[in-house]
Simulated assay, not measured.
Amino acid sequence: MKGIDSSEFLAREGEKVRLHERSTLIDPLYESRDDYQEALTAHVEELSSLQEVFYASNSYSVLLIFQAMDAAGKDSVIRHVMSGINPQGCQVYSFKHPSMAELDHDFLWRTNCALPERGRIGIFNRSYYEEVLIVRVHPAILSGQKIPEDLLNGGDVWEKRYRSINDLERHLYANGTRIIKFFLHLSRDEQRRRFLRRIDKPDKNWKIFRADIEERRHWDSYMSAYEECLSATSTKRAPWFIVPADDKKNTRLIVSRIILDTFRALDVSYPEVSEERQKELLELRRILETDG
């Protein structure tokens, strides 16, 4: 497998992101299907080992956020990359349309309730970023969010939401949560091909709806919203990675490598055993050895 430099996909803090300058398809990072499988397996196995120490240390938490257009492969990436993770240490949430109860709170409330505990990995399949993406493309949604009119009339709703998001992520980082954000960058043509496959394959029919096709009409608006969002909210402490998504195998290898780099950088270890605990363990050994 070719080397992966995760910095190639980073949206740097302060950068004005222009998605048309970012490729949705790069040369394969693998020589063959077997080479791909071997590389991904190695990533998954190392991540599993690192997660065991991470879980035992019970100090940091990690939040992975996945955003993308429909059919970009979010579910597939999560399933393949996180396949070796102990389910006890991983929590996956998929955020759909807010419920009536959720609309009675601020836009960050429902995701805040799902943040990972120390020692655990939280995965957000879509997230609070929907509030500056789909809501920006369809601003009529704001009218159903029970926000006072005087707060909507200033023309700076999105800037305020970016600021709230950055403040939240700064707070989480300061309290031990490491945040990695992935935008799976899919081309419009590839989305069309994947939608057609969903229609042609009976076992995929359940994954496509008329609303998916309707949203394609807003593609340019979504790209503009993503550019503004990525530019405003990619920071050193909570970076966005723009991952080419037209080749699912490449996508999985890139995402798994970025996650690995994050875990390798964490200062975690198994809890130290005190002298008193060592004595207790020796006593337990003695009991077991004489238990016939």
Results as ranks from 00 to 15, higher is better:
287 I>Q: 05
179 I>W: 06
214 E>Y: 04
36 Y>T: 00
140 A>T: 12
112 N>T: 01
11 A>C: 12
177 T>A: 08
230 L>M: 12
18 R>N: 10
59 S>N: 00
6 S>E: 08
128 Y>W: 15
148 P>L: 12
216 R>G: 06
135 V>E: 11
104 D>V: 02
117 E>Y: 09
134 I>E: 12
282 L>T: 11
292 G>P: 09
178 R>M: 13
279 K>W: 08
183 F>T: 09
98 P>R: 06
256 S>W: 11
218 H>A: 13
2 K>G: 01
288 L>K: 15
264 R>E: 00
246 D>V: 06
258 I>M: 09
48 S>W: 02
14 G>L: 02
227 E>G: 11
198 R>L: 04
188 R>D: 08
65 I>F: 05
41 T>D: 12
22 R>D: 02
98 P>A: 03
14 G>K: 01
195 F>K: 09
128 Y>D: 09
264 R>N: 00
214 E>G: 04
240 W>C: 02
215 E>C: 13
69 M>F: 06
288 L>P: 04
3 G>A: 13
116 P>L: 13
33 R>G: 06
89 G>S: 05
149 E>C: 07
274 S>C: 08
34 D>P: 07
154 G>S: 10
153 N>D: 11
206 W>Q: 10
54 F>L: 00
59 S>C: 01
203 D>S: 15
13 E>V: 13
172 L>Q: 06
191 Q>H: 03
39 A>C: 14
275 E>K: 03
212 D>E: 11
187 S>Q: 08
284 L>R: 12
68 A>I: 08
226 Y>F: 04
240 W>F: 06
123 I>K: 06
48 S>M: 09
82 M>Y: 10
192 R>I: 15
15 E>H: 08
143 S>A: 15
289 E>L: 13
40 L>R: 02
64 L>D: 12
181 K>A: 00
92 V>I: 15
268 V>F: 05
8 E>G: 08
69 M>P: 12
86 N>M: 08
134 I>F: 14
193 R>Y: 08
49 S>H: 12
235 T>H: 02
164 S>K: 09
281 L>A: 04
256 S>L: 07
248 K>M: 14
240 W>G: 00
89 G>M: 04
51 Q>R: 00
169 E>A: 01
94 S>G: 11
30 Y>K: 11
79 R>L: 02
3 G>L: 11
18 R>Q: 13
170 R>F: 13
136 R>K: 15
112 N>F: 02
132 V>F: 01
